[in-house]
Computed example of a mutant assay.
Amino acid sequence: MSARKVPHILKLSAKEQKEFVNSFDVVLCDCDGVMWMFSFPLPRTGEAVNALKDDGKRVYFVSNNSQRREEEYVNKFTRIGVKDVQADHIMYPAKSMLYYIKKHNIKQPVFSTCSADGNDVLRRGGVDVRTLDVKEGVRLSNLEEITEPKQKMGAVLFDVNLDINYVQMTAATRYLADSDCDFLFGAPDPTFRLGKGPFLPTIHDFYLILKRLTGREATIVGKPAVLLGEILKDVYKLDDPKRCLFVGDSLDVDIPFGLNCGFQTLLVLSGCTPIEEMWQASAEDQPHFYADSIADFIELYANISRKA
């Protein structure tokens, strides 16, 4: 289907702007590329979230990044001026894994190749997490012994971990040879780049290796999986998905996630998606609305106030 003209929220008529903000009660917001970039904040994003909250909107944050501790997330939101931010208002793969493990009574222990911070979230939630950190030199002569499964694992957990290595991948492959071992995957983002630099390997590339070697499809608990949407609906009591607005900067992760979950979608151009890419996308892959930044809500509310 050919592309359609996606409306910019500040180019809506006064009546349409008011109808737009009245069409949702809950805002689900991505973090990297929307609230901040990896290494620096984006202008007035905290002020925009506060404007939404002042209008009575419930605002939650949904990230695919488990590389930050929960306390670090809260501190980042506080530093950019978001008021009344609470740790339980932030969802990321380590927390959705924890939810899934408990809800489905996954047997323990589990083998994790996740980051240290992600493993800490799981352990604090009561999960018996096992890892494999090898200090000695690894050779073909001792690889089999080092990676041999010492006991049955209830699941292999896989997520973004910049320290992942060959030995851990090998051990995960061997645990997954057990058909009773579940396979959970956090953030399957297909692309990653630092600023405007070249595209870099992602954890999804490593997942494809495990999938090819084991023939196993992982249960994905991060964006864009609909399962994450079901988790959000349960945790945050989202009774009517159409009354939820999902705000993201990625046309290949955030927008499909929002669309597939039945949310309204708003693409912001402050992160990884250039506007040309949005116009070139087919109609079914485009967002409902777009904005230059989530900070556009500040001007949007000012417009509504002047017209009131």
Rank of each mutant, 00 (worst) to 15 (best):
T173V: 11
T45D: 02
V6T: 08
A51Y: 04
F77D: 05
A48E: 01
T265N: 03
V82C: 01
V26N: 06
L122W: 02
L157T: 07
R174C: 01
L143T: 05
V127T: 00
V226R: 11
N303H: 14
L232Q: 04
E145G: 07
G248W: 02
G215K: 08
N165E: 06
D159T: 00
Q264H: 10
H104R: 10
E47V: 06
V167I: 15
F257N: 03
K223Y: 00
Q286R: 01
I101L: 10
D182Y: 11
E144Q: 14
C272K: 15
T147Y: 00
L157I: 10
H288L: 11
L12P: 12
V26C: 05
H8Q: 13
K223S: 01
R212P: 01
L98E: 11
G125I: 07
D128I: 03
V127E: 02
M37A: 14
G197A: 05
R130T: 12
L232C: 07
L266Q: 02
T78S: 09
Y100P: 08
S96E: 03
I275N: 10
A14K: 12
L143M: 15
L184C: 11
D178K: 00
D296M: 06
V134I: 15
A308Q: 13
L132W: 01
T214A: 04
F199V: 15
S305L: 11
M153D: 00
L267A: 03
I255D: 11
Q151A: 11
A218M: 07
Q286T: 02
K83V: 09
I298D: 00
G229V: 03
A295F: 00
L10M: 08
T78W: 01
A48Q: 01
M35F: 08
D178C: 04
H204N: 14
T202D: 02
D25M: 05
G126D: 07
I220T: 14
V221H: 08
G248Q: 01
V167L: 08
R44Y: 12
L259I: 15
Y100M: 00
V268Y: 04
N75G: 12
N22F: 00
N119W: 06
Y100D: 08
Q264Y: 04
K242G: 06
D189P: 09
G258T: 03
R124Y: 12
S2N: 12
K5R: 13
H104D: 07
A51M: 11
P109F: 00
K102H: 12
P190Q: 10
F289S: 08
S39V: 09
I164E: 07
A218V: 08
I209L: 14
D32T: 01
A48K: 05
A172E: 09
G262W: 04
D163N: 15
Q168K: 15
H89I: 02
A155H: 06
L10Y: 06
S63C: 02
L28E: 00
E276A: 13
P188Y: 07
Y207K: 10
F111C: 04
E71Q: 14
V226Y: 05
L227Q: 04
D249Y: 03
E136Q: 10
V59H: 06
T170W: 03
P43S: 13
V167W: 10
V156Q: 09
L269T: 09
D117G: 09
L251C: 02
D292T: 13
G126I: 12
L208C: 13
